[in-house]
Amino acid sequence: MDTSGELGEFLRSRRARLRPEDAGLPTFGGRRRVPGLRREELAQLAGVSAGYYTRLEQGQSPNASDAVLDAVARVLRLDEAERAHLYALARPKAKARPRAARPERARPGVRLMIGSFGDVPALVMGRFLDVLAWNPMAHALLAGHLAFDAPGRPADRPNIARMLFLDPHLRELYGDWPAKARSTVADLRLIAGRYPGAPGLAALVGELTVGSPEFAALWAAHAVGDCGTDPRTYHHPVVGTMELLTEFMTLPNDDGQRVAVFNAEPGSPSESALKLLAGLTAAQCPAGLEAREAGR
């Protein structure tokens, strides 16, 4: 991905959502040629010259100071995730020397950890939302129609974003699919800023843009944000409706990898449904398969 182009598109999308009156600027009536703030107006409010801001938006100011970026973020009313995204795009990492691509893997210790969660669904996501490992409960919750050992095969490894937009099962699973879709694309945008030019991410975005008009529209909106942790409703085909909380844990020793854990409120009907799913999963899980996957 072209980081300078991404920066310009991101800043233009943030300018477009602000009206001049929101920023305390006079409008003088009449029709404006561009939605939101003009470059000159933003530059004035941020305390920089119009020429400098234009160069920043065109990706021609790689040494922009913290003061300038903070001023732009303030005027555009960026939240914490958007501010981090602005910094990532304005100061892209130096390109690493090319090396042979290796399939991403979850460490054995991390596999053992999610396996120890027992009746609590848990999985490991790679930096671009590939499922690197899951315990039987996460498999049963999200993708019981797929093979349990699919994460161990890089060629057809499940990917959360791909499943969400291209797999009808996931569309039916989420009670508020549009909200989950928006959250996932915003998270993917944030990831794109952290890993500019990553071929795997570019291929995923291209595939989803072609295969899903809904993804294409959300991607073009340049929304940025972390995965939401609010309760989500799941319409599971076997145990019915559940409301689950999801927590994400970043693995500090594994670049970009995260663990997702799904829980129900104690004593709730959702907890009863999750326990029912656990019983059914234990009866169906092939003997020894979980242990073999954990030891890969």
Rank of each mutant, 00 (worst) to 15 (best):
P178T: 01
S183V: 07
A147L: 11
G115S: 15
L7M: 02
G8Y: 12
G5N: 05
A94S: 13
T281D: 00
F128K: 13
R189I: 04
Y87H: 14
R38L: 03
N135S: 12
R171V: 14
V205P: 04
L188V: 08
E21D: 15
P62G: 02
L170Q: 14
S270Y: 14
Q257V: 00
A192V: 04
A260S: 15
G197W: 14
A73F: 09
N159K: 06
D187M: 11
L7K: 10
G228T: 11
A264Y: 12
G115V: 00
D230T: 10
L277D: 08
R102N: 02
Q58T: 00
R33Y: 05
A294Y: 10
A223W: 00
R232C: 02
M137E: 06
A43G: 08
D230Q: 14
L204G: 07
T27H: 10
L141R: 12
P26G: 10
G211P: 04
E247F: 04
P20H: 11
R111D: 02
T241Y: 10
S212I: 12
T250N: 07
R292Y: 07
D2P: 01
E82V: 08
A143I: 12
V259N: 02
E293M: 15
R232K: 13
Q44H: 15
R258S: 14
A147W: 00
F10K: 07
L18Y: 02
A186I: 07
E80G: 00
R99F: 01
W177G: 08
K93V: 12
G240F: 10
T250Y: 00
T27E: 15
P136D: 07
V259C: 08
V224G: 01
L112C: 01
L78Y: 06
V48A: 14
R55H: 12
Y52M: 03
E271C: 08
G240I: 07
G256A: 08
A192T: 05
C285D: 05
S116T: 08
G36S: 05
P269N: 13
L141C: 07
R182D: 15
A50I: 01
G115Y: 00
A81T: 07
V34C: 04
H139W: 15
V238S: 09
S272K: 15
S268V: 03
D176A: 13
R171D: 05
F215D: 07
G118M: 10
L166I: 07
P154T: 02
A181E: 02
A100T: 14
G211V: 10
L42G: 13
S268D: 06
D226Y: 13
R83W: 01
P98S: 10
P154M: 06
E41K: 11
L45F: 05
R105M: 11
E40M: 04
A260M: 13
Y195I: 15
G206L: 06
A202L: 11
L208F: 11
S49N: 03
G24E: 09
L86Q: 02
E57H: 04
L42N: 01
A106H: 11
K275M: 07
L42W: 01
L244H: 08
G51N: 12
G144F: 00
L245V: 12
D230I: 02
P269G: 10
L123A: 10
L204V: 04
A294C: 11
Y52Q: 03
R12H: 10
R232L: 05
G47C: 09
R258L: 05
A282W: 00
D2E: 06
S61L: 02
G175I: 01
L11K: 04
L188A: 08
F117C: 09
